[in-house]
Design a binder for these strands. Structure first.
Length: 274
DNA sequence: CTTGGTTCCTGCGTGC
DNA sequence: TGCACGCAGGAACCAA
């Protein structure tokens, strides 16, 4: 389940490999993954294009192209991107292939096929609602304590639901939300506007820290995630609560619990998180 | 405006 | 051992 740290890890690995490369051909094995424009235009507009650089916004990967267009890929749950030689056998779940001009291919593989690929011009960007309406990301200037405090104070819903909502904060998913709340010592079902100034500050610092750690560890491989080189991340070894149901809290030894919160499997320490 | 439920999708873990 | 079942969850969409 790629979140900001996983997608950033992929971006860092793939950018030096694809930047400056020309897409010589596109192969579509599963047309419904192409959400915009139609499949024929998608292929025609991409063929012959040069990739300038690979960027990221939240959980989106953005391939900036020479004609000003952007190839926008969201991996959702199980999407993977591989940069491999044409001689290497393709993963059985490979659905889209971008053939490059150097004997290598950029391969999009996806087990659950929930990922999306779109090709847009600059002026068509607002069409991509999730990308266009995304809030500031952790570790950026726009995501400062003032923004976060005001956000928390004016929202009545559960703090976990708020942290998951990409319109307010871009890039957090289920794993890093649970980890942030654990590090801050805040119960996931607390209402956002019930947090006092100290708790808001702790949560703000925790979000930035877990995202930073996640990137430094090359992402979390809980189930399906692998990086741009097909390797697992290392952050799963550092998880505080996520996926640790019935295991002891690393701080106090209390058994980690799992409940559904905001429609998501949610892990927390009932002793440390109030 | 908000929030909660449904849908998409398939490999895999669980239990009988 | 084999099989049925339900879970995993990001985001669009709809209803209340």
């Amino acid at each position: 389940m790629p979140e900001l740290p996983e997608v950033e890890t992929i971006r860092r690995q793939l950018d030096p490999k694809v930047a400056g490369r020309k897409i010589s051909a596109v192969e579509i094995g599963l047309p419904r993954l192409i959400k915009y424009p139609d499949v024929e235009s998608f292929c025609r507009l991409l063929e012959g294009q040069t990739i300038l650089q690979l960027e990221r916004r939240g959980k989106y990967l953005l391939f900036r192209l020479a004609d000003g267009r952007m190839l926008v890929i969201h991996l959702r749950m199980t999407g993977r991107l591989y940069y491999q030689s044409i001689d290497e056998p393709r993963d059985k779940f490979t659905h889209i292939v971008f053939k490059l001009d150097n004997g290598f291919e950029l391969r999009y593989a996806d087990i659950r096929t929930l990922g999306t690929l779109e090709l847009v011009t600059e002026s068509e960007l607002p069409r991509l609602k999730g990308l266009h309406g995304m809030g500031p990301e952790p570790l950026t200037e726009a995501f400062d304590l003032i923004y976060f405090s005001e956000l928390m104070s004016k929202r009545k819903g559960k703090v976990k639901a708020l942290l998951l909502d990409q319109r307010w904060i871009g890039g957090l998913g289920n794993i890093y939300v649970d980890e942030s709340l654990a590090l801050a010592g805040i119960h996931p079902e607390r209402l956002a506007n019930s947090l006092n100034a100290d708790e808001v500050s702790r949560l703000y610092e925790a979000i930035n820290r877990v995202i930073k750690e996640g990137i430094e560890h090359g992402g979390t491989s809980f189930r399906d995630y692998v990086d741009g080189e097909g390797k697992a991340g290392q952050h799963q070894q550092h998880l505080r609560v996520y996926g640790r149901k019935k295991q002891p809290c690393r701080i106090c030894g209390t058994t980690i619990e799992r409940h559904e919160v905001a429609g998501r499997g949610t892990y927390y320490c009932p002793h440390c998180q109030k």
